[in-house]
Design a protein around this nucleic acid. Structure first.
Lengths: 177, 177
DNA sequence: TCATTCATGTAAGTGGTTACATGATTCA
DNA sequence: TGAATCATGTAACCACTTACATGAATGA
């Protein structure tokens, strides 16, 4: 019931794969969850301390390990889908006011967005290659692949949108340019 | 240079279309920018007060109006694209740990996401219809259409991803179900 | 006259970021 | 021996949300 911090979910979840230090938790979040999640540095240690005092994790030789209570708690939190975050897309905010921003700047903004999406697609290709080579975490592979696929679909949609929008913008006279 | 609050951008931007009260600013953000932006209620009035004391807006008969300084400030802020927000997608966070969450719950999560995307597509169809009927804000129409298009591409990508992922999930045995 | 909408605000709290600070270990 | 990486933490701050509070105007 209680609105739980998403940080708790992320930290418990990475510890559910294997025990590790706070430093390694940070790296796992950045390297494995990086394309759909982030935690700021200064948040991980306080969270670990809190989870420890609540007996959801305990100290082991190789860092922090989930306790039984921690595993139950994690599953409970995974099943609780909190309300979707209110949208905040600064690129669209700017484009909505494109007539104030100017044609040229708008066009540039779309092209930057397109370039970012293409860069993401390259990253996803790398991740996919690593994923296919992996076999230590077989039970996870399908789900990991599903999250990568979400990123790919999203990035491809962004590229298609950008191309369409640039074509539409090309047909109007430039201002503020 | 100074990292400017995105709330300032949003508020100044809606006031750039026409002067209005704080209450109307709130409604404009909810109704016109709602599919890519949100501001919480308790933030609009303090922001207006601050913008006023900085002489970016002034009181007019019909509410708050941009000053000349305010219009310059807006354009300056529109041109400053701040770093993209770190991603935080709670659905993907949960799916990444799908083997802990369970097959059935994962499937449900994807179906809910798919349903939300379909609902969004319907909303976009309505918005498009209104947009085509509109002719008071001709200069804005192209840009408004571009933001709706972004939403449409994104929602369609979500549906396609969901269908693919549900098909992939259908072929694995159920657990925790 | 009573409910609803319009309108403006405040206070407390949360979640999160950034910057700072410290020290051990590894390895070139 | 000196740089980079591993490792753990704190303090100050910021943006934003939620809940609360008030009152005027509108319209059934």
């Amino acid at each position: 019931m209680a609105r739980t911090s998403q940080t708790d979910v992320a930290v418990l979840a990475v510890l559910s794969v294997r025990p590790m230090t706070g430093y390694a938790v940070r790296e796992a979040i950045r390297d494995q969850l990086g394309h759909f999640w982030s935690e700021s540095f200064g948040q991980i240690y306080p969270t670990l301390a809190r989870l420890h005092s609540a007996d959801f994790i305990s100290k082991a030789d190789d860092g922090w390990a989930l306790t039984e209570a921690g595993r139950s708690r994690l599953i409970e939190m995974l099943q609780t889908d909190d309300a979707p975050a209110p949208p905040r897309n600064p690129v669209l905010l700017r484009l909505f006011f494109g007539s104030a921003l100017g044609t040229e700047a708008s066009r540039r903004l779309i092209e930057e967005t397109r370039a970012r999406a293409l860069a993401q697609l390259e990253r996803f290709a790398t991740i996919r290659a690593e994923l296919d080579a992996e076999d230590e975490y077989a039970e996870h592979q399908l789900y990991w692949s599903i999250t990568v696929s979400a990123g790919e679909h999203s990035a491809r949609a962004t590229v298609a949108w950008a191309d369409e929008s640039l074509a539409a913008l090309a047909s109007v006279p430039s201002n503020h340019g």
